[in-house]
């Protein structure tokens, strides 16, 4: 259970054949127990994933009839409510974790949307991480041809590069750069036969946002998206920030693909912010700065929106909110200067 008594949910996504089930199967082998609920989706008529998972004697609840995210969200709601009923009536042990494996073509964001907006589920479940598998052998071609993968990488908190034994170290390094072009903040793990299944381990709410290593920012972003990392000259005014962010997501939500970062709002620790399109994970206030380093930042992944305009807008709202001398600057390439 999470800090607010909610069951923690891990969303596992990744393109067709990218090794989602291998990763999940290895995770369930390493961490056996009946307190993990697995909800999988089958795409098409052959429930191959379902049979594979049944082989490890877990109790997946199969969602039938299409894509869990785009077609049958009601099924996901119904299934999670059923899990809740079973647990609360004593027919299921206390649920420690729910792993939702999406179909290979699914965008993970609607799953997050369902969890955060359903009037019942939002009080009992909270998504703590999105893990995305990326097939090292085919990823370069898939990234070039499959827009679904772009959405999955952008939504990811952790990207697991699978089948690493079938490619060279240089190929893996190149793939890391490709991932960072879409999502500079995602943790990247390299896996062979599911050995990086720890990616599915529970994370505490807010733990998925880590201090940013500027040297890991991609030299050139992908042409379809803009990424920008904002730095600040002073502490932010939280009321002004919340007015600005709520207005920005309402006006530009579909094009603000991801915002992730740590803000200094004058408290002892940072405020951790994580959004996926119009979905805002409840901001987490940490008691101390990770690694003792007070380095606030905010990464934006956008489509068709100039990051420099976002920086100017945030600065204007902060100044109007009382932070008269505050400067907001891009610390990476897109805004043309580094702090």
């Amino acid at each position: 259970m999470g800090a607010r008594g909610r069951r923690l949910v891990t969303v596992l996504s990744g393109f067709l054949g990218s090794g989602k089930t291998t990763l999940l199967r290895e995770y369930l082998r390493r961490y056996p127990g009946d307190d993990i609920v697995v909800i999988i989706n089958e795409w098409g008529t052959v429930g191959l994933d379902h049979h594979l998972i049944r082989a490890v004697k877990e109790q997946p609840i199969l969602l039938r009839g299409g894509c869990v995210c785009c077609v049958r969200l009601d099924d996901l709601v119904r299934t999670l409510r059923e899990v809740l009923d079973l647990e609360q009536s004593g027919k299921l042990p206390a649920v420690r974790q729910v792993v939702i494996e999406t179909s290979g073509l699914a965008d993970p964001v609607p799953v997050l949307f369902t969890l955060t907006t359903d009037p019942i589920l939002k009080h009992h479940f909270t998504a703590t991480s999105v893990v995305v598998t990326l097939d090292a052998v085919n990823a370069v071609a898939q990234i070039a041809q499959q827009p679904e993968i772009h959405k999955q990488i952008i939504a990811a908190d952790c990207v697991v590069i699978t089948k690493s034994d079938l490619v060279s170290d240089e190929d893996v390094s190149g793939l890391r750069v490709s991932v960072r072009q879409f999502n500079p903040t995602a943790r990247i793990l390299v896996s062979c036969l599911g050995d990086a299944c720890d990616a599915l381990e529970l994370t505490v709410e807010g733990e998925n946002v880590q201090p940013l290593a500027i040297d890991q920012l991609p030299p050139i972003p992908h042409q379809e998206v803009q990424t920008a990392t904002l730095g600040f000259s002073d502490t932010l005014d939280w009321p002004a920030f919340s007015v600005w962010l709520s207005m920005l997501l309402e006006a530009r939500g579909p094009d603000i693909l991801r915002i992730k970062g740590m803000l200094d709002i004058g408290e002892a620790g940072p405020l951790v912010l994580n959004t996926a399109q119009h979905i805002v994970h409840p901001p987490e206030h940490l008691s101390i700065w990770p690694q003792g380093s007070r380095k606030p930042y905010l990464v934006f992944i956008t489509r068709g929106t100039d990051p420099a305009r976002i920086a100017r807008s945030l600065e204007a709202f902060q100044r109007a909110g009382g932070r008269g001398g505050l400067r907001v600057r891009c610390v990476d390439h897109d805004c043309g200067e580094r702090a």
Partner: peptide, 8 residues
């Protein structure tokens, strides 16, 4: 979310 504090 804009009104969330350290302790609900």
């Amino acid at each position: 979310w804009s009104e969330r504090q350290l302790n609900p």
